[in-house]
Design a binder for these strands. Structure first.
Lengths: 259, 259
DNA sequence: AGCAATATGTTGGGATCCCAAATAGAAAAT
DNA sequence: ATTTTCTATTTGGGATCCCAACATATTGCT
């Protein structure tokens, strides 16, 4: 349990994302104090934090207004994140690598492979896959030698779908409504891209590493387009429901990696 | 005059940058209250902001510790910023452009050209050049169609040398200690890169726009290396003294552009 | 003398109060 | 009836107070 203002910020952020606060709505400190039974001090801190994150913005006169989150905005943010990740891959390829980082990446690839080969995409499998995907991407961000890459990525990762190594899944295929093979194929292609990225980094090929990571990052953008083609009006809430919920704790990842 | 907490954050940030607070120093709320004669509320807000910016970090037990700012860190941040700008150039090239944006970019190029041709690099000339350089880069960031690019750039622009379109100048050459021709040449090359970026964007050549912007962004990194070769121990303070002080106000830029 | 337990002081989070500015509503004047 | 002005209420920034947690020092016990 963190401090109240952090929890408050998380709550309000979640409310904005899932549409409880629709965009343009005025947010006042007093109202939040009343509804959450807290004093104004943590409310102030939470609002400031959300303002810096870009979730809310100071209104014309008084108070804050809720910034609109659109599918297109998420697509844009994903693009920025992908571009930063491609920088990380290039930098890591052309710098001296830590052996443990490479090992962790290889381990993630193998584990994802094993999870895909299970053939069933139950919730637990998805969570594990998400955790390994996170480990792969986060290792590159941390291991590229430029700490500002990860820092900058983290700055936009409070939006849905933007946490490190986030994955989007076609819930319909998982529920058996549409054929699961296409989703499996997608995952296999994604992991083969992981292999290429790993090889390029390990062999010190920055151009290939950057290019493959750029391609790999487009996966989610294309996935979003698939959803848009199927659903005539894709909402942010839809996207959130398609994504793997819950961020894996870094400690859990490392713990599992040690086993 | 903004609110106290904003001013406080600016003050503390400046103190960290110029070394008044050396890295690793413990920062406590009470101490700041005492030294700045303010209450703890604005201090808390300022510290939270600086924490999110990455200037300070929660210490092991109590309080905050000052994060170290190194020349290498600045180089890394400049690299991240340049990478984001190259994304902006690519996106702007491949999307439909606003005519006014292109006009503003062309205007900036012409004005910089005229300023260079003056031949003297006095302080006022540098300020104007900085303003036009800012206008050029900022127009691309705003006009690329992806608002998260500029947002993300702004997130790291509180570090020295990272404000939009920042320029670094060789003060020694300006003061006549070393030959000024080399600096003039550098500026001319930089502006010719501006021309190429403009043409690539205007003609819808995303590959060329991205590549040229990437090259252009390396200019500052190479400049830093020049300084490092000359000075055996280049400090952050040295770098700050070489940069053009003061951010141009956006209103001023637009006002001048209208004339 | 060494270790442990308690006491005291330091520090950060939260609550409450105060004040200034701004907005909205009401009243008055044209 | 409309517009302007004045007042009252809303709202956000700042100050102060309180409390809990943690750190350190002191004291007591072995």
């Amino acid at each position: 349990m963190s401090s109240i203002d952090t929890e408050l910020a998380n709550t309000i952020r979640a409310d904005i994302i899932d549409g409880t606060f629709e965009h343009g709505a005025r947010i006042t400190e007093a109202r939040l104090c009343d509804s959450h039974n807290v004093s104004r001090t943590p409310v102030r801190l939470a609002l400031r934090r959300l303002e810096q994150e870009g979730m809310i913005r100071k209104g014309d006169g008084r108070g804050y207004v809720v910034e609109e989150i659109t599918v297109d905005g998420i697509r844009q943010a994903v693009m920025v994140r992908g571009h930063l990740e491609s920088l990380a891959a290039r930098l890591m390829a052309q710098s001296e690598k830590q052996a443990q980082d490479l090992d962790r990446m290889a381990l993630a690839i193998e584990r994802i492979e094993a999870l895909i080969d299970q053939g069933s995409l139950d919730d637990d499998t998805l969570k594990n896959m998400h955790a390994e995907n996170f480990a792969f991407h986060n290792t590159i961000l941390k291991g590229c030698g430029n700490s500002y890459v990860k820092f900058t990525c983290d700055q936009i990762s409070h939006l849905p779908m933007l946490a490190s190594g986030s994955m989007v899944f076609d819930r319909d295929s998982i529920d058996g409504k549409t054929d699961i093979d296409k989703t499996i194929l997608r995952l296999k292609i994604g992991n083969s891209q992981h292999r290429i990225i790993y090889k390029a980094i390990e062999q010190g090929d920055p151009v290939r590493a950057e290019g493959m990571m750029r391609e790999h990052s487009n996966t989610m953008i294309e996935y979003i387009e698939v959803f848009e083609q199927r659903k005539n009006k894709l909402t942010v809430r839809d996207l959130v429901s398609y994504s793997v919920q819950g961020n894996p704790r870094i400690e859990d990842i490392e713990e599992k990696a040690a086993s």
